[in-house]
Design a protein around this nucleic acid. Structure first.
Lengths: 157, 157
DNA sequence: TACGATCGTCAACGTGGTTGACCAAACAGT
DNA sequence: ACTGTTTGGTCAACCACGTTGACGATCGTA
């Protein structure tokens, strides 16, 4: 029987986690916009990360946990924005390889730097040990290697 | 200068926060589906919470940080699902009051119970002190009274 | 009374997701 | 080598959620 502390209702936990996630992502994209990437949306960074060296739309869909059609559409938009490019696979005429462009790599690299800065800011505020403890605790209560990016459809859907 | 620990890259922090949020919400809705509320989406619980005693679509939109039109559409869907109902305001013919139905209150109550159970499960795993510390730390680094529910459009949009 | 602000709704659109259908290319079995 | 199955990409239709713009109807006030 969960003895619910009235001062610590359970519904606050997800709210705080979401708020933490959102402030980090908002701060990241505010900074990215300043550094020449104003069109990058939160989703895009995850997709770029998931492309890695080179993929196909189907493979990307599997990694992201969405259909190949959805992945293909997202690739289309990132191609239009100049962050991804398509190329033919010389060894399989069916496959269309998806690669990160120089602009994409620039955004990816800047994201990594800003994320490090933001984590450092948390460490300055809370103490480095609290941040690592927070990470360790979250790792404990969440499934490992978790990577499902269908957030819009998942939340609303 | 943020001295980035290679073992603790900054981008893990948002991923872990999102994973924590998502596992809580997924567990909640798996349980709610078992308890007779399979159509409830993650968004819906937040909306029901935001309605409170009685509101209007415009007011709801302000609380949720979305346009009145978006709020109105969401209310339409929750009315169709039987979680909300509309009524005329006897004192203002422009306003259409939005109220939570009995079914809505049932879902809300069950959600609160399940969230308490989930928080207790985290406390059993991590220790009660770590959970409260996690909450306190997140409260410190996030803006207070934060409540913006335009997640699908925000993330993808 | 007349004017401006507010509420709800309609319409059009963008983004992200889904399924189903389809063709072309690759693969595997006889 | 030919045939049958699987796979990759795309098109089409649809749904959920968000946006802005426009427009009547109603309320409050000058």
């Amino acid at each position: 029987m969960p003895s619910a502390d009235p001062g610590r209702p359970g519904f606050l936990l997800p709210l705080l986690l979401l708020a933490g996630f959102r402030t980090l992502i908002d701060d990241l994209h505010a900074e990215l916009a300043r550094q020449g990437h104003p069109e990058l949306r939160p989703l895009h960074g995850f997709v770029l990360q998931a492309v890695g060296d080179s993929t196909t739309a189907s493979e990307l869909g599997q990694r992201l946990g969405v259909s190949k059609q959805a992945a293909g559409k997202t690739v289309d938009r990132l191609v239009a924005l100049g962050y991804l490019e398509r190329a033919d696979d010389p060894r399989d005429a069916r496959r269309k390889l998806v690669r990160v462009t120089d602009r994409g790599r620039d955004g990816l690299h800047r994201s990594a730097v800003v994320f490090d800065e933001l984590r450092q800011r948390w460490a300055d505020t809370l103490g480095a040990d609290r941040v690592t403890a927070l990470e360790d605790d979250l790792r404990t209560v969440t499934p490992a290697n978790w990577f499902r990016l269908d957030v819009p459809g998942w939340f609303g859907g």
